[in-house]
Structures are given as C-alpha cells and as structure tokens.
Design a protein around this nucleic acid. Structure first.
Lengths: 184, 184
DNA sequence: GCAAATGTGTTGGATAAACAACATAATCCA
DNA sequence: TGGATTATGTTGTTTATCCAACACATTTGC
C-alpha cells in the first residue's frame, strides 16, 4: 500500500539513513543530531539526503512512522478484523512504541510523535473496519475517533497507570467501551 | 600506500560487500557462499559486485588482506622499526588473525591465506627495514625471508605449541634467532 | 559584538550502480 | 543419463548518487 520504490539503491540508501538516524538517536538527543552526522554515519553524500527527505524533521517523521508500522504489522492487523483481541494488540503496539521512544529522548517533539501515531492508527483501523462493513465516509470518522481514543488512552496509561500492564489497563475498559458505543 | 579510491560510493559499496562476506563467513563455509548470497545481504546488484571484484576468490583475497592489515596496523608498524617488541607484535597479529580465521571455516584455502599473510608481512617488514638502512634490493629479500620465517613459526605454533601463548613461543626463540643471524 | 567556523539547502555535470537481458557453466534430482 | 534449476560472468542503457560550488542561516568563542 505505501508506493514501494523498487530501485535497490533507493531502498538501500533510505535504510542506511534511517538506521544511522535511529542509531544516533540512541547516543544523543534529536536536537543535537545534524544532517551531517547522519550522512557521515551512513556513508552517503549530504545532497543525497535531500534527494530523499525535505529536512531532518521529515526524516524524523518518516522514521517514526516506519518503526511504528513495524510494530503494528507485528500485530498482523492486515489479516484481522477489529475484535477485542486485535484492539488489545493495537494498544500494546502503541505503548511498546512509546516506551522505545522514551529511551531515545525526543523531548520537544511530542506533538509530532502524537500526530504520527494517530495518523498511522487511523489507516490501520479504517483498513479493519471496512472488512466488517463497506467503504463509507462514516467509517473514516469512526477510525479517526478510535485512533484519538487509543492514543489518548496510551497517554493516560503512561501518566497514571504505568504500574500495571498495558493489557490489563485496556482489557479493564473494553466491556464498558463496547456497551457505551452500543447504546448510542 | 594502497591507492585510496575516494568516491564515497566506491568506499561504501566495498564496505557493504566485505562486511556481508565476513558476516556470511560466520554462518556458512566459504564453498557454500555464492555471489548472490553476498549481493543480496549487501543490498547491491550482482553486476556491481563484478565491477569491484573479478570473482569470489578475488573478494576472499582482498577481504582477508584487509582484515590482516587492520590487525597489523594495530601494531603500529608504520611508526616503529624492527626491534624485538615489534617483532613480537607482528607475530601475535598473525596468530590472532589465524585464530579468527579458524573460527570461520575457510577449509581448502590454506594456500591462498598463507600467501596473503606472507605478502602483507613482506610489505610491512620492508617498510620497517628501510627505516634502519636504505632502500636496497637486498632488504627486499630479507623481508621475504623474514615473512616466510614468521609465517612458518605461526604454523608451527598452531600445530605444536598452541598450549602456550604466542608471545611466550616467539620470545623464547628471538635471542637464538638474532645470534644465528649475526654470526652469518 | 563580530569574525570564524559550522550547518542548511540547492544546483549542474560526472560517474557508480541498477536493471534487464544474455550466453554459458555448474548443480540437482528423478 | 538428461532436463530443470541455479550460479556465473558480461553488456548497453538508465538513473541514483557523488562532488564541488554556491548563498544563506546558525552557532561558537574571543
């Protein structure tokens, strides 16, 4: 579904850049990482960086999207519908992702990260919803709302319930969530 | 001294190939490694492999040379003359290298490996000899003989003295070696 | 405060590397 | 054995990447 660029050089170069960036993120804060650092580490020319990304924020965005997408694909959302089990898996994928981020200091970019997570969630959720129903504009909105809900829950879990497991946190709520939606 | 190719693409591609080859060598025997394996792992086109290397044996040769050269540079031969200390360091560099090889199964290529080690040694030894003397054809021959001597000693150590340290093995002999050379 | 140094983003021309296609050689396995 | 599959090298064309140079912003340190 993401338009796959096939030229091996493009795949390889993007991988080198992303890997270098993730590697550097483990060593210093985002605001201390320069394009020069990344291209030196990746052994590519700086001009080549700009061939693939608008700037370092564009890279941040795409790198995070990709990492999150890998997490989500681990939940095999593509082959499943939106039942309780996949709902829990989605939630833990988000919390896992946020945990891995918190170890790599992206302070000051919470807004960006939040948007990335929500946007990806939205795509995944919509993909699942149209398996049970048909393609409707209303389902787009449902996906938007559920993505905000899941993201908000992950923030709440991190701030107030980090002592219990993400699974426990979300399982606890699901029955009430379903009934409250059914009522309306 | 090795003609340094400056284009970043060349450096990067060679590194990718060499790293992939060394990586694969840790997983399977040399005779089971195909060019396809290497290029797939390195994410480069097979034709590009042949742009840099004649064939897989050429790669074996250059990869081994490079690894050995790194070992030898660790001994800082460039800044030193041929005294007892550097002699011992050279010897341990060789035995270290052979040990690392024995963990990666290059069975059937002992001849190639032996030649690579001797040729590299010869270059390094000659570089040291002309610091104490001047550039003479005779010193080339001395370098040849010493390189054979050191290599032969490393084989003997591996076969018959592996229970003692390389340092002990070679230190033990150096006094006799020097006097026997002085006599003649 | 102001140089000097370092980083950003862009360009045009040169070149390494991808791709696709081919012929041939080695390997597999029924 | 023999046919199928897989690996080896090679080639012409296309394209991604390099390089060098540029103008401009940001940071650094005296």
């Amino acid at each position: 579904m993401p338009e796959v660029k096939k030229d091996l050089r493009i795949q390889r170069t993007r991988k080198l850049i992303m890997d270098s960036f993730i590697d550097l993120s483990g060593k210093k804060e985002f605001r201390d990482i320069t394009v020069k650092d990344i291209t030196t580490e990746a052994m590519i020319n700086r001009a080549t960086f700009y061939y693939h990304f608008d700037d370092i924020y564009d890279l941040l965005e795409k790198a995070l999207s990709e990492v999150l997408m890998v997490n989500l694909e681990g939940a095999q959302f593509e082959s499943s519908t939106l039942d309780e089990g996949t709902f829990i898996k989605l939630f833990t994928a988000i919390t896992d992702f946020q945990l891995s981020l918190s170890r790599r200091c992206h302070r000051g970019y919470e807004e960006t990260i939040a948007r990335i997570i929500r946007e990806q969630l939205e795509v995944v959720l919509y993909g699942m919803l149209i398996k049970d129903h048909e393609e409707l504009p209303e389902l787009k909105t449902v996906a938007v709302m559920l993505s905000w809900a899941l993201y908000g829950a992950s923030v709440d879990w991190k701030n107030n319930y980090a002592d219990q497991s993400p699974e426990a946190y979300i399982e606890r709520v699901i029955p009430y969530l379903i009934s409250s939606v059914n009522i309306s």
